[in-house]
Design a protein around this nucleic acid. Structure first.
Length: 204
DNA sequence: GACCAGATTGTCT
DNA sequence: GACAATCTGGTCA
């Protein structure tokens, strides 16, 4: 039994991931989040999606906003405790949702890139202005819009309501590794992970 | 399907 | 003043 399987035994299925889950190596967290459930309990109802695509951003990685541990106004929440949300505005109109990993002050995170919509479909459809299931959460900007995530949710804990992540209920899905999407720096690193054959990933 | 231009604004140089 | 961890809607095939 390897370390990852060992770790999975610690966390009951369908339970909110505790802080120790997020303290692990960032690549491990990115991989282990595949198949887990992202939940946002909004005023209009509960929205749930299964995580099918992630990317890791590391402190020694030029594409990371906290590269070399450099702090700024934008990336402040990346230096918060593990299990904190880091949400920022990109291209002037979309938000990207990340989860902070490792210990407080390091500055690493996992970008959630795509979800399989499971509950609160009508809310997501309204937020996204489309009824097409595949178009609701198949990209970081899309899923933030579908779940109603923005700067109000930046820096909050993902270990309690109204925004949290539940461990997977199914067996570990088959994972594919690739290079990351949309980067101008460090675009050659194998730090993107997605569930094989999922129709809800952003790109093949 | 593939490819490409444009949108739009906070952040950093 | 340049640019960004994106998406949409257009063209062409």
């Amino acid at each position: 039994m390897d370390a990852i399987d060992n770790e999975r035994l610690i966390f009951p299925r369908g339970a909110i991931f505790p802080r120790v889950f997020y303290e692990a190596d960032t690549v491990t967290v990115a991989q282990e989040l595949l198949g887990a459930f992202l939940v946002h309990e909004t005023r209009l109802g509960k929205i749930v999606g299964k995580i099918v695509e992630t990317e890791a951003y590391l402190v020694d990685d030029p594409a990371c906003h906290a590269h070399a541990g450099k702090k700024s106004a934008r990336n402040a929440s990346m230096f918060g405790p593990p299990g904190t949300s880091y949400i920022y505005l990109i291209y002037g109109m979309y938000y990207c949702f990340n989860v902070v990993t490792r210990e407080r002050g390091i500055g690493e995170a996992v970008l959630i890139r795509a979800l399989e919509p499971l509950a609160g479909l009508h809310i997501m459809q309204r937020n996204r202005n489309t009824s097409e299931l595949r178009e609701l959460c198949s990209g970081p900007g899309k899923l933030a819009q579908a779940l109603g995530l923005g700067k109000e949710q930046n820096g909050i804990s993902l270990r309690k309501k109204p925004l949290y992540i539940l461990s997977a209920e199914d067996a570990k899905p088959t994972m594919v590794t690739s290079t990351r999407i949309g980067l101008s720096k460090a675009s050659d690193l194998p730090l993107r992970f997605f569930i094989k054959d999922s129709p809800f990933v952003s790109r093949k």
